[in-house]
Design a protein around this nucleic acid. Structure first.
Lengths: 178, 178
DNA sequence: CGGGTCATACATACTCGGCATACATACTGA
DNA sequence: TCAGTATGTATGCCGAGTATGTATGACCCG
């Protein structure tokens, strides 16, 4: 979804062809999201199929094909932007399943898992701090805001790991699901 | 990934057939992850193709086909469990792209977006609190731990929204990426 | 100067995994 | 007999990655 509407949002400004869309998108994300070029083109094709976007003129320079937003595209973009991400929080990330399995498998080494995961989060925190600093240095206030959100997430994860580590783990806890 | 290894983890305990895998998996997640039945079967087929799982005996009762872990499956599962989720934090969620676009599109109504999103997070918070309570009532300590993590995430999101809302948004900030 | 090589801009095709819908079929209990 | 549940297959979309192809311009070397 984010890529699809990210592309729409970029095309709102001015018509672009695929390759340029990729560059703008990655620039907008400040290098935190490297998009596969193939995906850009399939995304554009789907957008065209759904009538949100349409090709402009004939193929130019070297096969370049520019796209522009259709009126429906404008509408879809505005709606998406106006709508908050709601719905229940998805628990689909690996860490959740790992915790559950480590709990119910006999020698799951839950404490080790937590310790390793905590280290990974600390590393992530360092990376994000560097990234935020760079964004500010580059005057990318918008990007720094994103990184700030990611930082808060990772801090939450760390806090979580700490809480869990300080629990006493009983032997026969939880795992009754039959 | 989580589904694939979740299935492996369930099969570590005892051989199961697809339908039963689905039930156990959803029970393990306490209803927070409804898996599509088709996906279970394709996952099992891929696991079999990759030699991590193998069918047991002939088809039983009503076409039931049980699977058990192969030695390679055991190894793969243990490795996955031992490995923390590392790598950089992905900024692929809708909210990030929405923020960027709302910033750079002229009348992006950033403040409105933040307010709406905050309301959505508050709702999520309520749902998670109910869920945690239920998990504890059911003696599902393992599940309550997960929900606790999700709660911390959502709290972080709220904090983020508050920070952003109290910023003063300049007109010509950020959006220089050419 | 001319030709080879290399990078870059630009695009397509193919593949795989996640995920959902829809369908088929057997059993089971009211 | 009918509803529901148990169990499975087929099909298709979307996200994402790999591989390939073709121009064009730059750069180097004899």
């Amino acid at each position: 979804m984010s890529l699809k509407f990210g592309v729409l949002g970029l095309l709102k400004g001015e018509p672009l062809h695929g390759y340029e869309v990729k560059n703008r998108f990655e620039a907008m994300l400040g290098g935190t999201w490297e998009v596969n070029i193939g995906q850009i083109y399939t995304t554009l094709q789907r957008l065209e199929r759904d009538g949100l976007v349409r090709p402009i003129g004939r193929r130019g320079d070297r096969g370049k094909l520019q796209y522009e937003l259709s009126p429906e595209g404008h509408k879809a973009l505005d709606q998406w932007l106006a709508q908050p991400d709601s719905g229940p929080q998805q628990l689909h990330e690996d860490i959740y399943v790992k915790l559950l399995l480590a709990t119910r498998i006999a020698n799951g080494d839950l404490k080790g898992l937590l310790a390793r995961q905590k280290r990974a989060y600390l590393q992530r925190l360092r990376d994000l701090n560097r990234l935020e600093e760079r964004a500010r240095r580059d005057g990318r206030v918008d990007l720094a805001r994103l990184v700030r959100g990611a930082l808060l997430h990772t801090e939450a994860d760390l806090k979580w790991m700490d809480e869990l580590s300080s629990e006493r783990f009983g032997a026969e806890e939880g795992a009754r699901t039959e």
